[in-house]
């Protein structure tokens, strides 16, 4: 059981770190660009919210499988498929949790408005400088929310892992899958323990999110 929990936390942790790196420039671009068609990108990013995870998982199974053009470059290095691997799960989780990282950061960037950047420009800060010394600090609550949401969402991920994981202990067998298996195997006592654990965790996440919101709300003038 400890192995399953550790693997789940590891998957969520790795996903969160990579996703924050990936989501920040994307959220910045979505927040600052004025073209209408940027919302096409915005919609693609938001798709995982409404798509059933099993649909996403099925497409991922095809995309990471041996027939996929995406896999061809890797096949030159002897990697036939990324399905059934931890790396495959990370890719799946990044896509699956993408909107939960991009949306809060984008909102935080948008809430800053133009004014601070105009001021920074008059103080001769380069755009890059302004990004690191103005945008990032002001958007901190958004990053905090994105981190918590991404981590929690990945912990609870089920459909995607079910479709591409293959249930390999220590590699792709995560918490939600284990609960599903235990219910299927009629081992309800152990299922209860793990499910209870997830319930407490989810409650703690939601509570901390609301508390963050309350604090940042109060800080605003």
């Amino acid at each position: 059981m400890a192995e399953v929990i550790w693997l789940t936390v590891k998957l969520a942790g790795v996903t969160t770190i990579l996703l924050l790196i990936l989501a920040t420039p994307l959220a910045w671009w979505l927040a600052r660009n004025r073209a209408w068609w940027k919302e096409v990108v915005g919609a693609v990013v938001a798709l995982p919210i409404v798509l059933p995870p099993t649909v996403l998982g099925f497409y991922l199974l095809l995309a990471l499988g041996p027939d996929s053009p995406l896999m061809r470059p890797l096949q030159a290095f002897g990697v036939r498929t990324l399905a059934f691997t931890f790396e495959g799960l990370v890719i799946g989780s990044i896509i699956y949790s993408l909107p939960f990282a991009v949306q809060p950061i984008r909102n935080a960037f948008q809430a800053i408005g133009d004014r601070p950047f105009e001021v920074a420009a008059t103080l001769r800060a380069s755009p890059l400088d302004a990004f690191f010394s103005v945008a990032l600090p002001l958007a901190r609550p958004g990053f905090l929310v994105a981190t918590i949401l991404t981590f929690a969402h990945t912990i609870g991920e089920f459909g995607v892992v079910l479709m591409i994981g293959g249930g390999i202990p220590g590699e792709t067998e995560v918490l939600s899958i284990e609960i599903y298996r235990l219910v299927e195997a009629l081992e309800w006592d152990r299922a209860h323990q793990l499910a209870g654990l997830l319930l407490v965790f989810a409650f703690a996440v939601m509570l901390s999110l609301l508390l963050i919101e309350r604090r940042t709300g109060r800080l605003r003038p």
Partner: peptide
């Protein structure tokens, strides 16, 4: 070398897509 599907349907899916 074993990969486990949650059901026999999934075992079939893994094989049908060539992933296994």
């Amino acid at each position: 070398r074993l990969v486990r599907g949650a059901s026999i349907t999934q075992a079939y899916q893994f094989t049908e897509t060539g992933a296994a």
